[in-house]
Design a binder for these strands. Structure first.
Lengths: 107, 107
DNA sequence: TTGACATATCGAAAAAAATCGATATATAAT
DNA sequence: ATTATATATCGATTTTTTTCGATATGTCAA
């Protein structure tokens, strides 16, 4: 994975709400029952959850959650797909896997 | 699991100097040639480096480095051994190993 | 006991991050 | 075109973190 900045990753993980979001997104269907309600069947955004649903669960303001997600994406932890007026965020599993490897060998 | 607070750990890792210290301490004899100079042979503080040596390499004030080390110890990353007027810090490898495991399974 | 040295802690100032409401932008629906 | 909805960004304030110098504590050596 290109461009990993460990400091940015650790900063993104240094907040309870952000850490929760990352963990909720491991099992989106469990934590976000309404997941994908807006999506027609032919569009597949596997594991992605829209900002509004995340905000509701996170119990923070819309702008705060939007900024959290942006921060986590910049760090590499998340990736986003836009579909219509919604932005779906999901974990970047490939990155997170490499991160675990980095952690094991470099930390 | 030994009393791990992920947020505190990630905060401790969210700083370049602290991250450097942790990595320097993987190979103390390489990064701190004077390591253990004060110790009589019969005392073994394997892998530990005293605050002054770390401070010199980290290029920050004495109080800052002392606080860094304290913070990393509270987070679980380091452990300290006091010998006379010196405090030797070394990595808590057991904790760090568990941390890597946590990372792999929980993040 | 005194002086020197290593480290820890305190208190304050400066820098950075968190957080929000307001507003902008983009898309969708009518 | 107009309106509604979802998300992003801006600007400002509050909160937290960083960082230091000063000082306290603890240990050693003479």
């Amino acid at each position: 994975m290109l461009n990993m900045e460990p400091i940015d990753v650790f900063k993104a993980l240094s907040n309870e709400t952000r850490l929760n979001i990352l963990q909720w997104l491991k099992e989106p269907e469990k934590h976000f029952p309404k997941q994908g309600a807006h999506l027609p069947k032919e569009v597949s955004i596997k594991g992605g959850v829209c900002v509004g649903d995340i905000q509701e669960k996170a119990d923070a303001s819309q702008s705060t959650v939007s900024q959290y997600l942006n921060m986590m994406q910049k760090a590499g932890l998340l990736e986003s797909v836009r579909y219509g007026q919604w932005t779906y965020y999901r974990r970047n599993e490939e990155f997170i896997l490499q991160l675990a490897e980095y952690f094991k060998t470099e930390i």
